[in-house]
Simulated assay, not measured.
Amino acid sequence: MPHRFDNAAEWAKRFEDPERDVWQKPDEVIAALALPPDAKVADIGSATGYFAVRLARAVPKGRVYGVDIEPDMARYLGERARSEGLSHLTAVLGAPADPKIPEPVDLVLVVNTYHHIADRPAYFQRVLGSLTPKGRLAIIDFRLGQPMGPPEQHRLSPEQVRQELEAAGYRFAQEHGFLPNQYFLVFTRAGNG
């Protein structure tokens, strides 16, 4: 689902709206991920930093890469990281077929972005190469039939996400059910118990 998000300041009004916290539950999401303070994390589709900034605060001894394919989003996040004193948060300009994560990470988080990625099995095979041996992939996206999110025809069922990621070399590990409008699926590298 190609979609342009090239005016970061305008999108920030929507993405960073405090009302989003009610249904996105960012603090609960980060708590559920149980990250150690030195974790390395990549937030794919980071946009204006809604999760990337929170992740950086959650891993003060770690590193967070906020990945986006929109140059203006990467610029905005880089400026935000500097202005908020988060030197361990780095904005990364990814490509549609390659997130360009600079080093292996313990967690890749993809929130409200999975449905935008074109060739997901190939893309997430590439992501697999950016995970540490025990690394995890967490996907949060809108469920079918919910009042918010992308048009219904662009949404994917959690079953489809599982099938695509299992084909890309992942194993389903866990599902969290506390988000009212979204599924929250966690995967590990296939072969890891």
Score class of each variant (00 low, 15 high):
T90P: 08
T90M: 13
T90G: 11
A91F: 09
A91Q: 12
A91K: 10
A91G: 11
A91E: 12
L93W: 09
L93Q: 14
L93T: 11
L93H: 10
G94R: 05
G94I: 01
A95N: 11
A95T: 13
A95V: 08
A95D: 15
A95I: 06
P96Y: 06
A97Y: 13
A97G: 14
D98M: 07
D98G: 06
P99S: 10
P99V: 07
K100W: 09
K100F: 09
I101A: 07
I101P: 08
I101C: 06
P102T: 12
P102I: 13
P102M: 13
P102D: 13
E103D: 14
E103P: 13
E103G: 11
P104N: 10
P104T: 12
P104W: 07
P104M: 07
P104L: 12
V105C: 07
V105S: 06
D106H: 15
D106F: 10
D106E: 15
L107V: 10
L107R: 09
L107C: 09
V108I: 12
V108Y: 03
L109F: 14
L109E: 11
L109A: 12
L109N: 12
V110C: 15
V110K: 03
V111E: 09
V111R: 09
V111K: 10
N112I: 10
N112D: 15
N112R: 12
T113H: 04
T113P: 01
T113C: 06
T113D: 04
Y114N: 02
Y114R: 02
Y114A: 01
Y114G: 01
Y114T: 03
H115Y: 04
H115M: 04
H115T: 05
H115D: 05
H115C: 05
H116N: 09
H116I: 02
H116R: 08
H116E: 15
H116M: 08
I117F: 02
I117T: 04
I117P: 03
A118Q: 14
A118R: 14
A118H: 13
D119I: 00
D119M: 03
D119W: 01
D119N: 15
R120P: 00
R120E: 00
R120F: 00
P121G: 03
P121R: 00
P121F: 00
P121Y: 03
A122K: 14
A122P: 01
A122E: 14
A122D: 12
A122H: 07
A122M: 04
Y123D: 04
F124N: 00
F124Q: 00
F124L: 02
F124C: 03
Q125F: 01
Q125A: 15
Q125N: 03
R126W: 04
R126K: 15
R126P: 04
R126N: 14
V127Q: 01
L128G: 05
G129L: 03
G129D: 02
G129T: 04
G129S: 01
S130I: 02
S130W: 11
S130Q: 09
